[in-house]
Structure formats: structure tokens, C-alpha cells
Design a protein around this nucleic acid. Sequence first.
DNA 1: GAACGGATCTGCT
DNA 2: GCAGATCCGTTCG
Length: 194
Amino acid sequence: MRKRLSAAFFQQQTLLLAKRLLGCTLETKIGGTRTAGTIVEVEAYCGPKDPASHSFRGRTKRTEVMFWGGGYCYVYFIYGNHFCVNVVSEGTGKGSAVLIRAIEPSQGVRTMRRRRRTTRLEDLTNGPGKLCQALGITDKMCGEHFLKSRRIHIRPGHVVAPRHIVATRRIGISKAKSKLWRFYVRDSRYVSKR
DNA sequence: GAACGGATCTGCT
DNA sequence: GCAGATCCGTTCG
């Protein structure tokens, strides 16, 4: 029996969950093909009080899933081109989530190269839009649960020690810029930006 | 019903 | 370092 995370893991406070997701494995299985990678970069979006969070304007059709509670998968479409995947955190009604920004490819690299139309390993999954394309993640997976879905999962990996985690400002946002809520693995070659 | 702007990526300079 | 692609969800009237 394969190791799995508990439901309680996903209900942790958002900043804690963000850091503890580093080192875990994000995996999809589409048409029998498995692709996976180790999470190396994330950003925390701390509910309706966080001006940079999609839930800032409350519960809408788009942000509904953010309020379903820890462990749900929130996927959104951005800039007319890209999907980004989030792990909903904390309890029901909190509206908080962790954006997965980069992973280190570990399985299905051939498939990722085909989907991305790129060969360089470091360029396959070093950005939120890129990793969704590489793993075949689309808005169809929005609302699934990382512990229950048949096609998208998060599995435990190794724990990343605090001294190996760098905290910086979040990328691409216009509000609440000063918060150090982006976390990445210090020595990873697979992060989006240093 | 229309206007606006965005948690990005790519390619060019 | 910067502009363009590209289109959905939100907001406002």
C-alpha cells in the first residue's frame, strides 16, 4: 500500500502547508500515462483578507472551490493561455490556497517533453503554467480532491528542512507585494525565478 | 452587454 | 529587460 497524506495535513494553516508541500510529489494519470514531479516552489494565498488572493472579493463562481476546505484542487485560467493549479488549505469556508509554481520532474519526462514541445529538463516545469501543461492539468480537474481523485494526487515525499527554504515576495501580483509568502527550495535548479 | 485587467510564457533585443 | 499573445471572470452601467 502506497504512502498517503492525511486529510488533516491539508487543513494546516496556509503558510505552514505551503512550506510542507515542498518535497511532496504532484502526480497526474491521464489515459493511463503517469507524470509526476517533486514540488520545489509554492506561494501562499491567505484567504479573503489577502488582497492578492482570488478570494479577496469573496465567494464567486470562479473562487467557489477555494472555500471547500483543505485538499481540494483549484485550477484557474489566466492570461488567455495558461492554467495554474492550487492546493486549497485550512478549513471549509476559509478561502485560502497554495499555488504550486514549480516542480522537479520525476516521472513521465517523455510525455512532458511532448506536451511542452521543449527538450531542456529545467524548462519543462519551472513555472505555474508550464507545470500544468507538462502534467496535463486543465480546468476540468478543478474541484477534484487530491486524496480522492483518480487522475490528480499529492503524495508525501521528503521533508525540506527550514534552512533549505527561501522565503521571497510573490511573483506577478499588484497588491500586498511586501509579504514574503513565496517559498522555494534553495538549491533546486527547477524553480521559476531566483 | 461591454470594458477591463490578470497568481504567465515566449521570443526578441 | 520588455512587449505581445489571448480570453475568461468580474464589475459596472
